[in-house]
Design a protein around this nucleic acid. Structure first.
Lengths: 215, 215
DNA sequence: CCCCATCAGTACCGTACGGTACGGTTCGTG
DNA sequence: CACGAACCGTACCGTACGGTACTGATGGGG
């Protein structure tokens, strides 16, 4: 262990080698294609051309593998903070609509749906931290982007709200409504995806009606 | 079969005997307590003091048992339609807040969460109609109550909207936001439940701001 | 009183999975 | 070249589950 000096990592501080990242990639693919039942240790080993022994050496047990998959996927998603430019009414609306559409696209993604299904399935037993991980790494991340945008809007005098979380909750609800749950339950996402743009615009309009500053 | 004349049923047209209903009750309890993994055929048979053979005779296979559980639970929930009385601004708000709070209570219920987790877990494989069943029996039911309420509000000149589904979607989103998903992911529901009343009122106020008729 | 259907309880079977152990191979290093 | 670490492929083990078959008990109807 100590002799290994230059362990090449996929990501700074992730502690994963390229090989292990590739294995997790295959595991995610298996999960997306066949659900949790298809995600067996033997299946992952076969798909990734590695041995089960290596899986257990790297990730401890099956739970560790699942956690690593979530962490790995989260590490790949980078939310670009465009908190830069100055805002007017039009650009704020554009930014909000873009955010809303991105949010819908993320939630409707194959990997996101599969991981959410996995974490929800594990949520029944106690001690499963998968749900908490997904919440922390996923929502907190995109929530920060929204929070920064809302805060910038308030700074520019375009938005009026007391509680930032409450405003974000309203925006989220207006955008997502029950679509996320419906997709998790298996409703064909193709038909829903077509309406994402229109839905994002309507939701942002409603949000601005609620929280837009009176002029 | 034909010789059985008076098969005592728990519910008109459900096709279930009292005994079978009791078995499903125990199965639901097992599911709530221990999640899907705890819901084994042997476990259900033991908990309900029946034989596995009877389970397979009555429900066909495990999938049939799950479907029967969902249908059974749905048959127990009766949404009272209070489409009667005349509405003014105050009573409409009261009705909406009551609806919102009921919605949050239902979604936060043990059995609801367990069944949703179950259906979501099964949603990965194709051909699983559990998600569709839950959607149809659950949401459609409570959606009708909301639709009737909204329609009554519009009839009384208190609400203004073109698309009833869109208005309901906005109400749902404002009320629920991401709380349902967070509860499904295992977030302690106790802490969330305390705020249900305040949350319902805030959401209804926002909804009335969006869809209340200008006077 | 007997017959037959139903059902509980149990034993059983095939399978599949999580986890472990072992032989053979590659590759970097002294 | 020799040594050893890492690792692949596979075989293996214990267990648990879905589903089936059998036995004995119960209870209602002719």
């Amino acid at each position: 262990m100590q002799s290994v000096r230059a362990m090449k990592e996929t990501d700074a501080g992730s502690g994963l080698t390229e090989r292990q990242g590739a294995v997790l990639e295959q595991a995610l693919r298996l999960l997306v294609d066949g659900g949790e039942k298809a995600l067996t240790t033997a299946g992952v080993a076969r798909a990734a051309n590695c041995s089960k022994e290596s899986l257990y050496k790297w990730f401890g047990d099956r739970e560790g593998l699942l956690s690593a998959m979530i962490a790995f996927q989260a590490s790949k998603v980078r939310t670009l903070d465009v908190a830069g430019a100055k805002l007017d009414g039009g650009s704020l609306r554009v930014h909000l609509v873009t955010f809303a559409r991105d949010l819908l696209d993320v939630l409707a993604g194959d990997v996101s749906l599969a991981l959410n299904r996995l974490a929800i399935g594990q949520a029944s037993r106690e001690g499963s931290k998968l749900g908490h991980m997904l919440q922390e790494r996923g929502r907190r991340q995109i929530g920060r982007r929204a929070g920064a945008l809302l805060e910038a809007g308030r700074k520019a005098g375009l938005l009026a709200f007391d509680d930032s979380d409450e405003a974000y909750g309203a925006l989220y609800g207006l955008v997502v409504s029950d679509w996320h749950l419906r997709m998790l339950l298996g409703e064909e996402p193709g038909r829903l995806k077509k309406d994402f743009s229109r839905r994002a615009e309507r939701a942002v309009d409603a949000f601005l009606t609620l929280y837009g500053a009176k002029e």
